[in-house]
Design a protein around this nucleic acid. Structure first.
Lengths: 353, 353
DNA sequence: CTGTTAGCGCCTTCAT
DNA sequence: ATGAAGGCGCTAACAG
């Protein structure tokens, strides 16, 4: 980057100090300070809004900032000041709208306070989470938001040792490393089972996607099954697609399930899958909920705009994201928020069950 | 953070050097170096994979790193080394799957090379973009990915002055500040018009969302209208919802349009809107494409899983994201990629038109 | 292949 | 309300 300088240096001064020889590096506090006729620290105070600067001085500094086109350097600032405005965010997937919704909530809260999310996608792989976390930690983020409570031992260790606030989002069924925001997915699954039982259904089916990866979907299924057992009902007939969740997978899996079973009502692992189920019924001339009842999870917009609104559970993803960011920010402000926040879910009755 | 220390310091030594008095700060290169019996720079070389370190030395260093639990500090590293592994990413919205898809592609490519996206959401507001960009620039990112080519003058200035690679994504209709990846939205709109004309339709409708915010949707509409005019056909009857794009908005807007017009075919601003249109038809008993033809844009999975697959245009969002990241990375590697990459779109015939 | 020296640009602490 | 001094932890630029 720095230009070559092949000439032998035969001047007496042995060491040539290179105070910003490189014009591309941009102005520094020192330059602004000189221009404003104040010291660096005063400019620093103005830039940080640290107070203890007279209005007149501040005006002169701001003017100098404008003239020089000074851009704050947070690398230097964070190194010296031990504080960052970056929050590491680890999400498993951006493949459907669920985690983007969470991220949206996170960004909402962070942006309002001048913080930035630094993102990593784990693809539901613990090793990838571990690797990404290690890499993020090198930036000394002010806080961390990670998904779920299932982590590798090394990940758990890093989260614990970091000394920064950590929020595990989505799930409050397991005690968190530090803090958690979400809902109980077991309870949600059970709630849907009870709702369907209350509607008179007795023979159940379950259609799911790759549950090995998506632990929360697995928990909903567990809750659902447990509630059926508690009610003395037979086990649900299941069809698990083994693929990631998608509308197509749900559509195919329901078709497959119906080849070998005649459930009255089918609980899907989520709304994408359930929407696929609805599409299968639409295409196959199966009437909802007369011939078959369908229920999902998440409360996505698409489900509510179907010809018949989907019976589902609203999962308040954006609230979860916002809340997670707020908890981090509260900690950074010296507060001690409740370590676990259950934002609760809402059963949306819909018309498909 | 540092504990209070109110005692007056009456010792002779005037300045107490605090080399890491705070245990929470974690080990430094110096500690690892001491433990491995080498100099700091050698540890640094190992950590950065800079080469020029013997296998034996490297092994000792790695062992010392393990023993001390050393975590690299990129704040210090980037400050000293003038290089970051962070890429600023500015997206207008995470409200539907479109930009998460792009982000997914970006993250894909970045993660493979050890880079991280630092995210900002502009909500389609130029002032917000400007503000976020200024804030991101303070982190001296290695590159920048921003959406579209419409920016405030200040934003444009910052993008130009940054001295870092910049990619404007989604749209290649306008010359970029530095580089661009995307498709021509005008061409896409025109292509759909020609496709529909080729299918025999002559009376057209257009259903859109808030076009003031979404310039690319506006360009598709322009291309569509222009192609109709070129073919000597009457203007499309339009219904613009003024809200952000959503399935519900599309559903409502189509219903409204059909109250006052009888188009043979309707082009929607995107697949979310078009899906809403399909749902309206499903609910109102309008048969597709006999009574009405519908076309969208984006090629979302949901559209292809509808009882009849949606006629639409695939927009290769993930490719756009990946490509954008690759262009930045190429530049950082000293290469000079073509400044404009048109990834092209695909007309998906579907069955709704 | 390994080490020395001198900052990177800012903020903390302490003084005034 | 303002300033002086030094260090945050690391890497570039040389030497050897």
């Amino acid at each position: 980057m720095t230009g070559p300088d092949p000439q032998p240096d035969d001047q007496p001064a042995p060491r040539r100090r290179r105070l910003r020889p490189d014009a591309s590096a941009g102005p520094t506090l020192a330059e602004v300070a000189a221009r404003a006729g104040v010291s660096e620290i005063t400019v620093s105070r103005v830039m940080r809004g640290a107070g203890n600067v007279s209005a007149a001085t501040e005006a002169r500094v701001r003017e100098a900032v404008r003239e020089t086109g000074y851009v704050r350097n947070r690398l230097a600032g964070s190194l010296a000041g031990h504080r960052s405005n970056q929050i590491g965010v680890l999400l498993p997937s951006l493949g459907n709208i669920v985690f983007p919704d969470v991220l949206n909530g996170i960004e909402d809260s962070l942006e309002a306070r001048g913080f930035h999310p630094v993102l990593g996608i784990t693809h539901y792989q613990p090793e990838r989470e571990e690797h990404l976390l290690a890499s993020l930690l090198a930036w000394r983020p002010a806080g961390l938001i990670v998904t779920g409570t299932r982590h590798s031992a090394a990940t758990r260790a890093m989260l614990g040792a970091g000394g920064v606030p950590v929020v595990e989002v989505m799930d409050v069924d397991t005690p968190p490393v530090d803090m958690a925001v979400g809902i109980s997915h077991r309870a949600a699954g059970a709630a849907m089972a009870r709702h369907l039982i209350g509607r008179g259904y007795r023979r159940f089916g379950y259609v799911g996607h790759d549950l090995g990866a998506d632990e929360r979907a697995a928990q909903r299924r567990d809750g659902f099954r447990h509630a059926l057992a508690t009610a003395g009902l037979p086990e649900a007939q299941e069809c698990l697609s083994g693929t990631p969740s998608s509308v197509g997978a749900g559509r195919a899996a329901l078709a497959q399930l119906l080849e070998r079973a005649r459930p009255e009502a089918v609980f899907f692992s989520n709304d994408d899958m359930a929407t696929g189920g609805v599409f299968h019924c639409l295409a196959a001339g199966i009437s909802l909920p007369g011939d078959l009842a369908i229920a999902g999870f998440n409360g996505l917009e698409i489900g509510q705009q179907l010809p018949q609104p989907l019976t589902t559970i609203g999962s308040r993803r954006r609230d979860i994201g916002r809340r997670a960011a707020d908890m981090i920010l509260a900690r950074l402000a010296g507060e001690t928020p409740d370590p676990v926040a259950d934002v609760g879910f809402t059963l949306i009755p819909g018309a498909t069950a």
